[in-house]
Amino acid sequence: MSSSSTTTTTTRLLMLKASDGVTFEVEEAVATKLGAINNMVEEEGSEDLICLPNVNGKFLGMVLEWCKKHANNNTNSDKGNDEVNKWWDKEFVMDLDQNTLYHLLMAADYLSGTELVDLLTEKVASMIRGKKVEEIRETFKIKSDFLPGQEEEIRKKNSWAFE
């Protein structure tokens, strides 16, 4: 806040500490894309170091990468930027494996990154949409844990969806 009193945006830096001790230094405007951090900043005010014991450094890094992209592009609300953001999001989720998806979702949900959760859940949904049950099981390596006959019974009840 010292020298930049002429600019409208504050460039306060926050330190985020992940569960494995890895720390990230990010601008407040970036970190507050996450609802949880925004709340902490508003409540505590002066605290610059925020510990996040539930998020591993690797995934916190990815979450912050997303935040940075979206915080930057939000400042100048251009229509072209919307497209750039969409394209960037598509790339971001393109090759995520199941394990990464899981940890990112857990991290984004814990940090209340609503938009990011939305992006990631849509990614998972796209892997389910229009597929047969066997194909979905194959994609996610899901093993059926129903009792014999139980699955057939549920299928019969919902036969309209399996036609």
């Binding site: 389910i128 949409r129 049950v133 979905i136 899901i142 059926s144 844990d145 549920i154 299928r155 919902n158």
Partner: peptide
């Protein structure tokens, strides 16, 4: 929430 009722019904027999 991103899926149609048909897809949800199919997801319900996964596990």
């Amino acid at each position: 929430g991103h899926l149609s009722p048909e897809s949800i019904a199919r997801a319900s027999v996964l596990s």
